[in-house]
Structure formats: structure tokens, C-alpha cells
Amino acid sequence: MENIEYNHRLDKVFQLLIEISKGNFSYRLERSDKKDELEALTAIVNIVAEEIKDSFLHQGYINMHDSYMHLVQMTFLLNEKFEVVYLSQDVPTLLNFTQEELLHTPFWKLLHKDSLINWDRIKKVFILNSSSEKNIKLIFRTQETIQLPANCKIIRLPSDAISTARYMVISSDIIKNTQLQERKLKSKILRQIRLPKSKTKNLLEEKSFLKVSDIEKFRAIGTYLKNNPDKAAPSLKELAHEFGTNEYKLKRGFKELYGMTVFQFIKNERLRNAHILVKRSNEPFKRIARQNGFKNATHFSREFKARYGYTPRDLRANS
């Protein structure tokens, strides 16, 4: 018995890994209260899927934000009893149930048990007429019993719009839009080909010039700056030499990786550290300022206000 259960849990891990290998990072495994090796494996596979998914959204590195788009994953229309009366074509693929299995079932049956309380609550809100649109994160069940968490929007439809449908649920996700990207590249290359030779420089400029070894250096610099907020900011030249790179690369590469300049980064880290101390301790501002590399309390207060829109004094008074 023990063995069957173990194998079943292991199977789920494989299923998720297969989904990951296919490029689907949206699925997650259900966690148990166990603490054994298999549970540890389950946890780390979920973490890996989560990290990979979010790494596509890293905006600082390589300028390609516009190659992402919001994609509607699933659309459901529900009747007044919250039963599914229509679903989009993607739903059977994503949840791996057939259209017949999904149609005319109460919507809650598509959800994982952790989402049932939320769903009941939102249903009540709609029944009581207190809202006509709501955002909610729901976890869907799939045929393979792996989970599909999705950000959903529920909309009450005007009652004279469609005969039976009263509510619409849409889930959306952000995907890398390769098609769009390829089309763009194609038209750009075609444009370049037709242009005189001297203009081809533009094409190269959009490519990142960073090598893996450079990225590692910039990460190390970021970590160093984060961990030493009290030290006076070094000059870019010193910093670059300390970590075996040059000023030009540091300037360009750091911004590409973190989306801000070295000095913006330092200021950001200092203010973030200081914010929590202002809010949750009784340390004098003078000391907080010094510990976080500000010249004095006035300088600190000015920068703080510029970043957060209120002074340290305001924050402490309201904490």
C-alpha cells in the first residue's frame, strides 16, 4: 500500500517534469504534509517551474519586453447556477478533460479543493449583487491531478445578452510571443537587406553584448553592494577593477542586468533597508541614516521623501 502511494506521488513528479520539458511552466504539483525525500523533490520541482516561468519576465536583461503579451488561456461561460455552458477550445487541452466531461458540470468541480472556499466566497458576492467584476486566483484540477493555478477574472454578463449565460470566467497568462517576435525580426531583416550597408549597425545594437562571465561579475557586484550599505559608494572605476571588468562594461552591463544604474541600485538598497527600520524600530534616524550610507539625517530624509513620497518622520508617526 505504502509503495503504491509512493509510486503515485513519483508519477506526478514525472508528469510535471514532462510538462516543463514541453515548455509548460504553469502547472504545479499538489503538496502533502509529508517531509520525506519525495516531498522535497516535489517542492523543488514546483520552485524550479515557478522560477523558470518568472524568469521570462525579467525586464532588465535584454531588451525584449514587447515580445510578451497577455494571452487568454481559458474562457468559460456559466449559467445562473454557475454551471459551465460554454468553454473555449483551449480548456480541454489545458485541463486534459474532454469537452463533454466539462460541459454542464458545476464550475467548482473543475477546481482544486484549496480554491473552493475562495470560489464560494466570490459566488456569494455575485449572488448578492455587490459586484459585477472580480479578479481571483484559482487553482484548476487537471486529468493528471497536477494543478494549474491561474489568475482569473469573473464578469457578470448583462441579463439580456445571452439566453443562458450569466457569468464569464477568463484566465490569462503572459507568454513569450515568438510569432510576433519572429515577424518583427523578419521585417527588420528584410528592411536591412534593402538598406545601404552603413545602416546595418542598428541590427547589432539590439543584441545583448553580455557574456555569461560578465553577468556573473555584475551579479557579484550587485550582491556586494547589497551587503555593504554602510560603506561609501565606490567610484565606478574602482568597482569595475575590483571585480575584474572595466568601467564602460560595468555601466552598460549593470543597467542591462538590473534595469538601473549602479548608483540608483545603491540608493534603492539603502532606502529599502532604512524603510523597514524606520517603520519597525525606535532607532534614531541619525543612526539609521549612518548605517545605510547617508551623509546625515537631512540628506536621508530628503532622499526618502523623494522615493516614497513621505518623510521618515511621517512613516514612524503612522506605524
Binding site: K34, K35, D36, E37, E39, A40, L41, A43, I44, I47, T223, N227
Partner: peptide, 17 residues
């Protein structure tokens, strides 16, 4: 236990505290 080992490892390896 294995679960807390993996969680603490993720914390230690991904961050340089």
C-alpha cells in the same frame, strides 16, 4: 528532514546573505 534541507538549500544557494 529532506524537505527542510531542500528549502534551506534553495535559500542559501540562491542568495548570498
Amino acid at each position: 528532514n529532506p524537505l527542510s534541507h531542500i528549502l534551506s538549500n534553495v535559500y542559501l544557494k540562491a542568495n548570498t546573505p
